[in-house]
Design a protein around this nucleic acid. Structure first.
Lengths: 337, 337
DNA sequence: CCAGCGATGCAAATCGTTTGGCATAGTGGC
DNA sequence: GCCACTATGCCAAACGATTTGCATCGCTGG
């Protein structure tokens, strides 16, 4: 059984005494086949252990029953959760979908993004989810009218042909900042991430402040590296300012955790001396002490939504210009603010 | 450019005035082609934007340049990190490898494991990494002499044909328990996971105890669900025992974190009143207070190793009976014990 | 009696590569 | 002059499915 090449549709046909055409028709259901014949064919398939060769099928039909997801790093919980949401939707057997998922890690490198984009196009995937920062900025994608549906995650690009799903970072950040204000904070600082992303969060912070009639003070805005260490460093410089901020909104949870580290280190009590809120609601948010008040970033739902948009196009249910769906980012209040 | 079907090898050949055979040869380098001809062909390829159709190639050559990884849940950090290690090795462009990675989530369901196994075999992947518990126990895998290389992760199956890579759970657990003992703990308990896995960790605990001449007391061994909540529950019952254990080794970090939750809740100090050590060294281990002493589970290296074993077989460098590589699990001492 | 139709099934073309076998020409040694 | 060999490149047969068009048969209704 190992040496022998796989059993083909022809083998099945021969075994039953019909033509390959007929076998194909019972498999696809595209044309009527007499019940008796169908019966015999099914049995032969079972008996011989026939399994269709998907390369041949793909060559002929031009579809691969596979979607690709291009992410910076599958190790990052946001992307792995997003990927899972996508995979669950496009591969939902009970809903009659059976797309597999092909994953590419770019590490944010433009060169790898390009390489993988070509790779997946060459592979003939039926749909592509791009959650990698640079690529979307890359005109390549929009320029090449690739016949393959694409959905971009969380960018702010205007591609009239690709669908897009993005979280409402701005509103989430605004709610977080407003929450801080409503708790009585007078001097609300912000720890931002690297300048390449997260602009929505930056804007939400500013919006909440101005809406409440507070000034935006540059010395209370510091950038970190999206990491715990980055948050620590930023928090240190923030806490040395006078007057000292009594609340800080961090552009992600990791930095918020770093900020809490430093608060403890300085003998400051959270949230009494300084309140902290994060963004993302990663698992660690409930592990740190005190539990982190944060904004939920709907990774799973984002993946699901991307999957739905893709499905619509892959099945031809929707053909039209790019749609955008934006998902809410609810505030989840715990103990750090 | 969108409507027209892709440019084929024939188009290139025609454009240059040679046969498709020749174009194929310059692409594969399998036969000599005159330098001048090669030059012209390369230029035409560039000009026309030719990209080989991988379905056709796969149909002909019977290889897909793709490996599959079957995991319970890509969302689990252990598996996403493992997957990344695998992807990095088999897709290392600079080492001349260009396998893509196809991911399947089984949620531990036997039915889905079977389904995905068939799926990837039908797809003709060149190699399979199985990191899902049930499957390996499943005779299916071993029984069918599938011509595709398989490596199993972390099981204890004896499949003479599949390679295997596993972490030395037993030694790690033994070291962790010994560490507790060496710190002066007299009553070392253990929180185990669900019975379906982690036997090595169970055994390491017992081994360390007996090696030190301590009895193994059943009332100090409790099972949790591998989750934080499971750890909490287990810890609660453990802490109600009299005499109360003064140290607990948890079969994973999540449960250890739950255990620490409960210790705090009961007003017990960690590690003074009760020392805690975990297993895995997840990111959260450094976030919880006190930072968790734990055993590092080399997820990335496990994926890498699996990739190497696969590569060896896919390139035909190694053909022989199943090899097993076991990776060490070093103890990392922090503050919880 | 004939036209038309539904039911059933087959032959053959097609998808885009790779590859074994063969052809031709040139070169150099004897 | 002949042989062996290299260099170069083409022909045509796979690979395993899907799909279009056609053929046949048996009925039915007018």
């Amino acid at each position: 059984m190992s040496r022998r090449s796989r059993v083909t549709i022809g083998d099945v046909a021969r075994h039953v005494g019909v033509s390959p055409t007929t076998v194909s028709h019972v498999l696809s259901g595209k044309r009527l086949v007499a019940a008796a014949t169908k019966q015999r064919i099914m049995q032969a398939i079972e008996e011989l252990g026939y399994r269709p060769n998907s390369a041949a099928r793909q060559l002929r039909t031009n579809r691969s029953r596979m979607v690709a997801v291009i992410v910076p790093d599958i190790t990052n919980p946001y992307y792995s959760v997003l990927t899972r949401g996508l995979a669950d939707v496009v591969g939902a057997a009970d809903a009659g979908h059976d797309y597999g998922t092909y994953v590419c890690n770019t590490d944010g490198s433009l060169e790898r993004e390009r390489r993988y984009l070509h790779d997946v196009l060459d592979r003939g995937v039926d749909g592509i989810v791009v959650a990698s920062v640079n690529l979307a900025a890359e005109p390549d994608l929009a320029r090449r009218r690739l016949g393959t549906p694409v959905v971009c995650i969380g960018g702010e690009y205007d591609d009239r042909d690709a669908d897009m799903v993005t979280a409402d970072d701005r509103a989430g950040a605004e709610a977080a900042t407003a929450h801080l204000l409503s708790r009585g904070a007078k001097r609300v600082a912000m720890i931002r991430g690297a300048p390449d992303a997260g602009a929505g969060r930056d804007r939400g912070y500013v919006a909440a402040l101005t809406a409440a009639g507070h000034p935006v003070r540059e010395e209370w805005i510091v950038r970190g590296h999206w990491t715990r260490a980055g948050g620590q460093e930023a928090m240190r410089t923030l806490m040395s300012r006078r007057p000292r901020p009594d609340a800080v909104f961090c552009a992600n949870d990791l930095m918020a955790i770093g900020a809490i580290d430093v608060a403890h280190e300085l003998g400051l009590r959270v949230p009494d001396d300084v309140a902290v809120v994060g963004f993302d609601d990663v698992d660690a948010a409930t592990i740190v002490r005190p539990p982190l008040t944060t904004v939920r970033n709907p990774a799973y739902e984002t993946g699901e939504e991307a999957g739905r948009l893709l499905l619509d196009r892959m099945r031809g249910v929707y053909t039209g210009s790019g749609r955008t769906v934006v998902l809410p980012c609810p505030l989840v209040v715990r103990e750090s603010a």
